[in-house]
Design a protein around this nucleic acid. Sequence first.
DNA 1: CGCATTGTAGAACGATCGAGCTAAAATGCG
DNA 2: CGCATTTTAGCTCGATCGTTCTACAATGCG
Lengths: 199, 199
Amino acid sequence: MARPREFDEAVVLDAAVQCFWRRGFEATSVRDLIETTGLTGASLYNAFGDKRAFYRRALGHYVEESIADRIRRCEALAPRAAVGAFFAEIVKRSLNDGERKGCMLVNAALELAPHDAELRQEVATVLDQIEAFFLRCVTAGQADGTISAALPAPALASHLLGVLLGVRVLARVRPEPAVLEGVIGGALALLDAGVEPAA
Amino acid sequence: MARPREFDEAVVLDAAVQCFWRRGFEATSVRDLIETTGLTGASLYNAFGDKRAFYRRALGHYVEESIADRIRRCEALAPRAAVGAFFAEIVKRSLNDGERKGCMLVNAALELAPHDAELRQEVATVLDQIEAFFLRCVTAGQADGTISAALPAPALASHLLGVLLGVRVLARVRPEPAVLEGVIGGALALLDAGVEPAA
DNA sequence: CGCATTGTAGAACGATCGAGCTAAAATGCG
DNA sequence: CGCATTTTAGCTCGATCGTTCTACAATGCG
């Protein structure tokens, strides 16, 4: 019917994620986005709406590519191993994060979610999904005896979510292996309390 | 020797903290600061330097008034009670935080610390002080038997710091008592593991 | 008092912000 | 081919950004 687009939406979103991830929403200008994505202002506004809508698209793209994908990969493992692998990947990513970008979702949770009800709902939904992943792991692990049942599964899942967020913050200020592993080690010790006392 | 100031520096810093705390650095304009503090642009720049320097002064003021003061108050208690009181106060503050301002230090850690080496150093120093407070509590508690010695004191202290940061993030998105207490409950269970088995 | 010094007042600066406009280019359909 | 529709290109807009300037007010010291 009309002129076709000259850009690949996924590529453009990847570039937008890099911008917003690195500098956040406020500190990223539309001109930054134009330069990094390669498309013009008119194309950007025509295809994605305004800056905020573009950010939401980029955040959704990040969540799907980074977080949801990680959950999918870890969910293939045994319950206790899934949690361990999840956090191991977080530590590895954080230590290799030379730009200290952290997690774009956590960044959004602090910069935008408090002032933007819609975005807060979207962030909360993703946090719910992460917590649900932890809950599935803990419940299954408690059932097969590989995870301690000293605490109720929902409390353990919330604790894991909290530790995850804490690590993501700490890594942007002090990305040192000892500290990050100390934080996570506590949570894992909680999962293993009373389990495998000599293994 | 010259004309005296018409403003109280502490009052002005309180007002600046409110601005920067609520909206962050980038989203706060110098005009916002002028309106809220009541002083003119010339006075602001004359007394504090540029916007970034003003932010650093405000953050320092916040840390002293809010964080350092809390540590001082909790440090008067017995080790295990000090940790409990610290987190109880965090939960209470988070649940009463209708504006979802969170913790200004955590906000700074995510918005500015990654890109600003000086500020990152200042934030890291404060995080160190918080961790040191936890470490003093844990060490003393392990010595008098009120805190579990299942994990080394430094690891427990790091874990507590991580949980604190996680709670501060989570509270800005989902400030629900059950979630926050679930996160913290895990950490406290770790302190109590094996201690007071029937008390 | 009068001079030096500092603070206050408010307009003004250039730069940059997000967003919109106009006109040209590229397609499918008739 | 030519009409309808969409994308692209780049200029432009008014608003706002952080910062500075000039003029004036208030003090201590001589």
